[in-house]
């Protein structure tokens, strides 16, 4: 049985940062989402939600993240409808946890509204950078605590959402 640590800080320095890559794949007809989060931050988060006791196996981390990521990260169409993301997998490595999600891509869709509050319930300094990629073009945004939602578009307006005018 794999058992797990948490007490104490496992990592050299805390970065308070996650990184999310969203790729619009018109040829596959999919939206692919990969979150990269520091393993130790997730261990901290689990400690907080589950209490200090217990063992953090990869399975425990995955089942927790399944619930957590849905609350902390979402994408929407420009019409304001949430695009449900299918859960693909979680990869736990020493430094990073990778979370994979996927949704169908509507034809011609080049705009997403993004909400990203990953770990911002735990760390006030948490900043989450999102890359949206389409045909080799990339647009990025960094979410701070209490940031608004953000619209990224390759054929329209990019900025804090809802727009002020």
């Amino acid at each position: 049985m794999i058992t797990l640590c948490v007490a104490g800080n496992g990592h050299a320095h805390r970065f308070y940062a996650s990184f999310t890559q969203i790729e619009l794949q018109p040829t596959k007809g999919t939206i692919e989402v990969i979150h990269r989060i520091f393993t130790h931050d997730i261990e901290d988060l689990l400690m907080r939600y589950r209490g200090s006791d217990g063992e953090l196996s990869d399975e425990v981390i995955e089942s927790f993240l399944k619930d957590y990521i849905v609350q902390a990260f979402a994408i929407y169409s420009p019409d304001g409808n949430m695009i449900p993301l299918n859960w693909i997998a979680v990869e736990v490595t020493l430094d990073n946890i990778f979370v994979y999600q996927e949704a169908p891509l509507q034809e011609g869709q080049e705009t997403l509204i993004i909400a990203d509050r990953i770990l911002q319930d735990l760390f006030d300094d948490q900043s989450n950078t999102v890359n949206l990629k389409l045909d080799g073009k990339v647009k990025s945004h960094t979410f701070q605590k209490d940031s608004k939602m953000y619209q990224i578009s390759f054929n329209g307006r990019t900025g804090d959402y809802p727009f002020e005018n």
Partner: peptide, 20 residues
């Protein structure tokens, strides 16, 4: 980094903790 202390006083650690 250190092992997890359980309620019964035992301590265990994962491969991740060790490499960490």
């Amino acid at each position: 980094a250190r092992p997890t202390t359980h309620e019964d006083g035992t301590r265990t650690y994962s491969r991740r903790t060790k490499h960490g």
